[in-house]
Design a binder for these strands. Structure first.
Length: 481
RNA sequence: GGCCCCUUCGUCUAGUGGUCCAGGACAUCAGGUUCUCAUCCUGAAGAUCGCGGGUUCGAACCCCGCAGGGGUCACCA
């Protein structure tokens, strides 16, 4: 037994440009990408744009942007070419035509004389009788010459097929699954069913990952390979990704977010990848958090689940927080990019980094950053302070005199501080004792006054970061009642 | 309706005949650390392993049947 050369592994993502990519589609792609990376093979991007009616402007761009964001780079594709270029099907029409012509001339394909309406009637009749519709039951005995205005169908032998699916295992389907499908439409364009077979063959694809809705089409593909005299790649049927209800496949129509929406919210690609890869796959250990390299190293086709899994935003959120916490500060800072509040414009990098370090472990996604850090860049409003005092159980009980006493004592004390974290802590803890208040009261009061919020990073870090001048200025605020 | 796939805590899952009256993680709840939040730690609750038969000394794991869910039966992919 010879081990296949690792370089013979070639997988592909072959989307049709009909809209924005969402999690369901990408998960199948993640698996394909991992298989290629792990086997040191190649990952291809091929655009399947043979249905001009459904094409959506900008979809190709969205597809590429989505893949790039996630780091799912491709070795060959429409934008970068490759040995088997072109990688856009609409630019390969001649190839499909040649194959179709050859099949037609050898009698393996024939022109379909029925009108759309006639077919529709036949289909409805079958459906009314609760029977599957099979075109071959109505196959014309003497099909007309193919002049290009009729659809061209491939003639398939109805028989039973048994094959091994890398995920689903051994599958057998009967002759009722085999039917003469259209390979060239009456508009002259080839169908997916036809050209993906040709392209996968010509582009030497070794493993085809497909989502579950294609499973019952595989016998037809197998039969077509036979008729065309070419070998079939390894089929991997990946289980569906379900929406929150757990009843339906994730789909754009039913509200699935485009994957790039998560970039807009400030999710990390590594967390998204971790999340997607672990819907329907795990490595058999109790590990939950995987880096990209770990995914590549540990992924195993045999451990892909057969059952569908829900796209659980809750888990994604947790995973994202976990990935953020694992990131060194400098890397996190680079990822955060423009998610800072507008008030941070003009602030220097060192200051922003310091602020970031204070919210590092409480950040779940970057879109939270403005609310978490705004007060580091802008003075809180008096209204904010007053409202938050009112919302704080301990502080709203304080009468104005007591509040003033605590505030002025704080100002006096901090005027003497060098504003190092250690000194701030030392002085403020001493002040708590001197004033005979609970730390929770004094610290909460200071927090609200300098941040305008009841929720903020640790008080000493916050004060040290804001610095002496800013802090003292904020502490001198007059709170109108 | 035919065919195919699926079915373990709410969710993602571990589990391939005994170590499982089922383990982990998310979410939930409680407690601890603590100046708030978050992190972190501890704990609780949560699954008669879809149901019914069978095989076996013994079944979540094997066999049969059933039910439920999903997919498919396009000149869409």
């Amino acid at each position: 037994m010879t081990t296949p050369k690792s370089s013979s592994i070639r997988t592909r993502f072959a989307p049709s440009p009909t809209g924005a990519l969402h999690g369901g589609t990408i998960r199948t792609t993640v698996f394909a990408w991992l298989i290629a990376k792990q086997g040191q093979g190649k990952f291809l991007l091929r655009i399947e744009d043979t249905d001009q009616k459904r094409e959506v402007a900008g979809a190709v761009q969205n597809i590429m942007d989505s893949l790039r964001w996630l780091g799912l780079g491709w070795d060959e594709g429409p934008d970068k070419g490759g040995e088997y270029a072109p990688y856009t099907q609409s630019e390969r029409l001649d190839i499909y035509k040649q194959w179709a012509q050859k099949l037609y001339e050898s009698g393996k394909a024939y022109a379909d004389p029925y009108s759309t309406e006639e077919l529709q009637t036949l289909r409805e009749t079958a459906q009314a009788a609760k029977k599957p519709f099979l075109y071959r039951d109505y196959r014309p005995e003497n099909p007309p010459a193919w002049d290009g205005s009729q659809p061209l169908r491939i003639r398939l032998e109805p028989k039973s097929y048994t094959w091994h699916d890398g995920v689903m295992g051994d599958i057998t389907m009967g002759p009722e699954m085999i039917d003469d499908f259209i390979i060239i439409k009456s508009d002259g364009f080839p169908t997916y069913n036809f050209c993906h077979i040709i392209d996968d063959y010509l582009m030497k694809i070794s493993h085809v990952t497909r989502s579950q809705e294609f499973l019952s089409s595989i016998p037809k593909f197998l039969a077509a390979h036979e008729v065309m005299g070419i070998p079939s790649p390894i089929n991997l049927t990946v289980p569906p990704v379900l929406d929150e209800t757990g009843k339906r496949k994730l789909s754009k129509r039913l509200g699935a977010k485009p994957i790039l929406a998560y970039r807009e919210l400030g999710y990390l690609p590594s967390a998204m990848l971790n999340f997607l890869a672990t819907i329907g796959w795990n490595d058999g250990t109790e590990q939950e958090i995987f880096s990209i390299d770990e995914l590549i190293e540990k992924f195993k086709i045999e451990r892909i689940q057969k059952s569908g899994g829900i796209f659980d935003e809750q888990r994604l959120l947790w995973l994202n927080g976990a990935h953020i916490r694992r990131l060194p500060l400098d890397e996190l800072y680079a990822h955060v990019g423009d998610f800072w509040p507008a008030e941070a414009n003009g602030a220097n990098d060192d200051y922003k980094k310091q602020v970031l370090s204070l919210v590092h472990e409480r950040l779940k996604f970057f879109a939270e950053l403005p609310d978490l850090t705004r007060f580091f860049f802008a003075e809180p409003t008096v209204q904010n302070i007053v409202e938050n005092i009112g919302a704080n159980k301990q502080l709203r009980k304080l009468d104005v005199a007591e509040r003033d006493r605590l505030m002025s004592a704080t100002q006096t004390t901090l005027a003497d501080s060098d504003f190092s974290q250690a000194d701030l802590e030392l002085k403020l803890r001493a002040l708590v004792d001197a004033l005979e208040v609970k730390p929770g009261v004094l610290f909460s009061l200071i927090r609200v006054v300098i941040t305008g919020s009841n929720v903020a990073p640790g008080l000493f870090e916050t004060l040290a970061t804001l610095g002496k001048e800013t802090s003292l200025k904020r502490l001198s605020v007059t709170l109108a009642e």
